[in-house]
Design a protein around this nucleic acid. Structure first.
Lengths: 188, 188
DNA sequence: TTCATTATTTGCCAAATGGCAAAAGTTTTT
DNA sequence: AAAAACTTTTGCCATTTGGCAAATAATGAA
């Protein structure tokens, strides 16, 4: 739980009473590799803070290919924020890439926290904004990079993952085919 | 000014008094094609609402190439949000792609609005989040598309722009070279 | 352990895109 | 109007990436 609290504290002050409340509202969830935290077609009812492990967000494009939109690692929140906020069915899956320990907040818990902790909304908004800005800044340059560079950058960010994750997850994230990725790996 | 007010009203309620205040804080700025709204290296001190025209956000990558990160069109806000909020020098330029009419809010005006209008922060946060989510959702599939598809999608979103904008703006946004884009155009 | 299933690598060749430089076209300046 | 500066197109060829199918390798189930 410390990881979560420290993370929140980086975005705003919280007193001990508030911290205790947050701690009480968080539920530990162990999610095994391959299992889904949330699924397309359903309205997301929870937000996950990743204490250990890595999730990925993926969807099916119009050609029916499964596309990994991004990976989310330790000490970050994961949720289809758009669907969650608007209470509309998600178009994405959120899946454990490796065994994960999550701290889960339900919609109701979040409402309580928002109503009780005056700084809560401000903190959450900062976190949300930062996470989204990072995603844009990550994706944008990828378009101009070649496949090998994109793979090397992935390796840097997720060194432990490259060989433990199905090729398909990675290839679709990098925007290349599995065989291309396989060849790129070989050439390194 | 109506465009702005209607846009804001889509994200939250505002009474006439509040609308008047917002109107008073907004400054009209005509920005001609090619001119910069904000520049890399400077701390952004203003936010722009685009009443007419199109802006682009661009930067120089490590190879020194100028990359168009995205275009922002009518009825949207533009700012390097990260630098603006953190008050750190921007790494991006915001430039008029065609002649623009902007409604500009200074940091101070925004602070006033935030302090005076109770719903302000909520509205702005919703707008920010929506804009960022849209950018991620736009960029992510582009990686899996070929250059022609990316160009066609651009054409759909900005039909009027394709032939009025320097090739270089467009090509760097699409992640291809100018000559490739020129050939793609020809082939259509 | 063995079989079945799934994931990854590889070969072969086609298609897409890039690099570079010259030519053609546009715009701006004088 | 002519010259200069800049933008876009084009040719030629190299490199990258893809498509498809077969071969290997790895994983999981019986």
């Amino acid at each position: 739980m410390d990881k979560l609290i420290n993370y929140l504290l980086a975005f705003g002050q919280l007193n001990q009473q508030q911290i205790d409340l947050i701690t009480r509202k968080a539920q530990v969830l162990k999610l095994n590799k391959g299992n889904y935290f949330s699924e397309a077609g359903k309205i997301p009812k929870q937000v996950a803070f990743i204490e250990e492990g890595i999730l990925r967000v993926c969807y099916y494009n119009s050609e029916g290919d499964e596309i990994t939109k991004y990976f989310v690692d330790e000490t970050n929140f994961a949720v289809d924020i758009n669907s969650f906020n608007q209470k509309i069915p998600s178009s994405e899956y959120v899946q454990a890439v490796i065994d994960c320990t999550l701290l889960v907040f339900s919609t109701e818990s979040l409402n309580d926290l928002s109503a009780t902790i005056i700084q809560w909304d401000g903190i959450i908004n900062k976190i949300t904004e930062k996470a989204l800005v990072e995603k844009v800044n990550k994706l944008s340059p990828m378009l101009a990079e070649d496949a090998t560079t994109r793979y090397l950058n992935f390796l840097e960010k997720f060194p432990s993952l490259a060989n433990r994750v199905p090729l398909s997850y990675l290839a679709s994230y990098l925007g290349i085919t599995q065989s291309s990725l396989s060849r790129i790996r070989k050439s390194i």
